[in-house]
Simulated scan of single mutants.
Amino acid sequence: VLGDRDELAQVVQNLMDNALRYGRSGKRIEVSLAPAEKGGKPFVRLTVRDFGPGIAKEHLPRLTERFYRVDAAASRARGGTGLGLAIVKHIVNRHQGSLSIESELGHGSSFSVLLPVAPAPVRSR
């Protein structure tokens, strides 16, 4: 993908930090990177999945709002600011990508970033 190396590293770091912070004890997370397609164009999908308590459906649409926390007291106790996912969304949007969040109570959460594949370099003859 084309993009700002530091910003894309921040996306990965924020998603992994959240998975480790809010997942169950044992800190098991899964990280995957796979080719994807959207509108007939090639993309790359990065997915970070935790095995924590999950997030209630009514909170999912607001998770990327600045300072929004599902449980403010628990988030503060774990060192969260409520900015991580807002930063992720902003960076992903700047890179013409998208962020999707899936979660089920009792089964953890999955955060996926879809980014366009860089065009192949033009070869000179």
Rank of each mutant, 00 (worst) to 15 (best):
residue 58 E to D: 11
residue 45 R to N: 07
residue 36 A to T: 01
residue 104 E to R: 15
residue 95 H to Q: 06
residue 44 V to L: 08
residue 108 G to A: 05
residue 108 G to L: 07
residue 83 L to V: 00
residue 56 A to N: 10
residue 113 V to E: 01
residue 73 A to Q: 05
residue 82 G to S: 10
residue 65 E to A: 11
residue 37 E to S: 04
residue 48 V to H: 10
residue 37 E to R: 06
residue 67 F to I: 14
residue 85 L to W: 12
residue 91 I to D: 04
residue 87 I to R: 09
residue 55 I to S: 12
residue 29 I to D: 00
residue 62 R to D: 14
residue 120 A to F: 02
residue 109 S to I: 14
residue 109 S to K: 05
residue 41 K to E: 12
residue 116 P to K: 08
residue 92 V to E: 01
residue 86 A to E: 14
residue 114 L to D: 13
residue 63 L to Q: 06
residue 103 S to V: 04
residue 87 I to M: 04
residue 31 V to F: 11
residue 58 E to Q: 03
residue 110 S to F: 06
residue 89 K to R: 06
residue 70 V to R: 05
residue 83 L to S: 00
residue 84 G to A: 15
residue 76 R to I: 10
residue 68 Y to V: 08
residue 76 R to W: 12
residue 78 R to W: 13
residue 118 A to F: 02
residue 108 G to I: 13
residue 53 P to Y: 10
residue 82 G to A: 03
residue 123 R to F: 14
residue 62 R to W: 15
residue 50 D to V: 06
residue 54 G to I: 00
residue 116 P to L: 10
residue 89 K to M: 08
residue 108 G to F: 15
residue 98 S to A: 01
residue 68 Y to R: 11
residue 123 R to G: 05
residue 86 A to Q: 07
residue 68 Y to S: 13
residue 105 L to N: 03
residue 70 V to E: 04
residue 103 S to T: 01
residue 85 L to Q: 06
residue 118 A to W: 02
residue 110 S to G: 05
residue 60 L to P: 04
residue 123 R to H: 14
residue 72 A to M: 04
residue 52 G to S: 02
residue 81 T to A: 12
residue 33 L to M: 12
residue 103 S to F: 02
residue 46 L to F: 00
residue 68 Y to P: 11
residue 94 R to W: 12
residue 50 D to T: 05
residue 50 D to I: 08
residue 95 H to V: 10
residue 58 E to T: 01
residue 100 S to A: 15
residue 31 V to N: 12
residue 47 T to Y: 15
residue 91 I to E: 12
residue 69 R to N: 14
residue 120 A to N: 03
residue 29 I to Y: 02
residue 105 L to D: 03
residue 120 A to W: 00
residue 97 G to T: 04
residue 102 E to A: 14
residue 120 A to L: 10
residue 117 V to G: 00
residue 96 Q to G: 09
residue 75 S to C: 09
residue 52 G to V: 03
residue 75 S to A: 09
residue 109 S to Q: 13
residue 120 A to M: 07
residue 79 G to C: 10
residue 100 S to H: 10
residue 48 V to K: 07
residue 41 K to S: 12
residue 113 V to T: 08
residue 42 P to V: 04
residue 115 L to A: 06
residue 105 L to E: 04
residue 40 G to C: 08
residue 95 H to Y: 12
residue 93 N to C: 06
residue 114 L to I: 15
residue 34 A to D: 08
residue 116 P to Y: 14
residue 101 I to F: 08
residue 32 S to G: 11
residue 104 E to P: 05
residue 60 L to N: 11
residue 52 G to H: 03
residue 78 R to E: 10
residue 79 G to V: 03
residue 34 A to E: 04
residue 61 P to S: 02
residue 81 T to V: 12
residue 35 P to F: 07
residue 86 A to S: 14
residue 33 L to N: 05
residue 98 S to G: 00
residue 39 G to E: 10
